Computed example of a mutant assay.
Amino acid sequence: MVELTPFLWCLLALGALVVGLSKTALPGGATLAVALFAAVLPARTSTATLLVLLIVGDAFALLMYRRHADWKTLVRLAPAVIAGLVVGAVFLALADDDWVRRTIGVILLIVVAFTFWLRRRTERSAALVAGGRAASIGYGTLGGFTTMVANAGGPVMSMYFLASRFEVKAFLGTAAWFFAIVNIAKLPFAIGLGLLNTHTLLIDLVLVPAVVVGALIGRLLADRMNQAVFERVVYILTIVAAVYLLF
């Protein structure tokens, strides 16, 4: 901890604030936190440190939106997400950091393009495609894969929930349960690889208050956010995240 300068601590605090905001108002925004943590900490350390903060954010999201989840959607996604987590673990063992970042960036851009295509269809046909087996397998596998390799599953699943035409509260409630379950499932991997240790947990302890503040601010924003504005913000954050990962 003594190796981090005040400026670097500020960057980490900003990332933690973004984690809280992303969990209660701006799904997909956590990818900005991924970028900030990776810029300050070694890659493996940043992944483990951020995972704990994401779980803290998940707890606040559940407190606020747990009653708004679409459980049929979550159950339908489960098998594909598990497959994606396994594929992601294998990919991590074989690929270097550059391949990981660029692969996820390409995936996100493809997902955004596909979701735009869905939204241009009639509401009925788009809902049928989004609710179909192929879509749940595709988005679920990609979501599990990207969250395993880089804590970057938010943008992928945001696109799926948008394509499914969830209103804001249902979107946030379903996302809250999805990532709470998935992030807790990732903990054994992080512990088994020795990524979670005293050093990373001490950093998390310092940064948790920023996550709390971000979550509370996010709740205020969500209560006042127009559906169209909400969807535009999600699209923009996803595209920015993809471009960052690519370049």
Rank of each mutant, 00 (worst) to 15 (best):
L245V: 02
G218Y: 01
G29E: 08
L11H: 03
V19Y: 08
R44L: 10
I184G: 00
W117N: 02
I137P: 06
M225D: 01
R67A: 01
L142M: 15
A93C: 00
R165Q: 15
Y139F: 15
T238V: 01
V129R: 10
A93L: 06
I137E: 06
A210T: 04
G29Q: 07
L51S: 04
R133T: 15
I55Y: 05
A39V: 04
G153F: 14
L53G: 00
A80C: 04
N226K: 09
A210F: 15
M225F: 13
L4S: 04
S125W: 13
L237Y: 11
L196K: 04
Y244G: 00
V243N: 08
D96C: 02
T198Q: 14
L62S: 05
R101T: 02
M157G: 05
L8C: 00
A163T: 08
I203P: 00
R44V: 11
P209W: 11
L54P: 03
F178P: 12
V111I: 12
I137K: 01
V86C: 02
G57V: 06
A180Y: 09
P6H: 09
T31M: 10
G173R: 10
L246A: 00
T31V: 15
L237C: 05
M64Q: 12
T49I: 09
V211S: 04
L50N: 01
A134C: 08
M159G: 05
L41F: 12
L17M: 12
T115W: 10
A185W: 15
P155D: 13
W99I: 08
F230A: 00
L216H: 06
A130W: 08
K169D: 13
M64E: 10
L41G: 01
L92I: 06
S46I: 09
T5Q: 03
A215H: 01
L36M: 14
A170G: 13
V240C: 07
Y235I: 03
T115N: 13
V2W: 07
F145D: 02
G153P: 12
L21D: 05
V129D: 15
S22I: 10
I137W: 15
L128T: 13
L201Y: 13
L77M: 12
A185F: 15
P27G: 03
L128D: 15
R219G: 08
L62Y: 05
S158V: 02
L32N: 02
G88P: 08
V233W: 11
R133W: 09
A59C: 10
I82F: 15
S46N: 04
G15T: 05
F179Y: 13
I181T: 15
R224L: 01
A241V: 04
V233S: 00
L195R: 12
I110K: 02
W117V: 01
V111A: 06
L74Q: 08
G132S: 11
G88H: 07
L36K: 01
G218F: 00
A38C: 06
R44I: 07
A33E: 07
L17V: 07
S136L: 13
D223E: 14
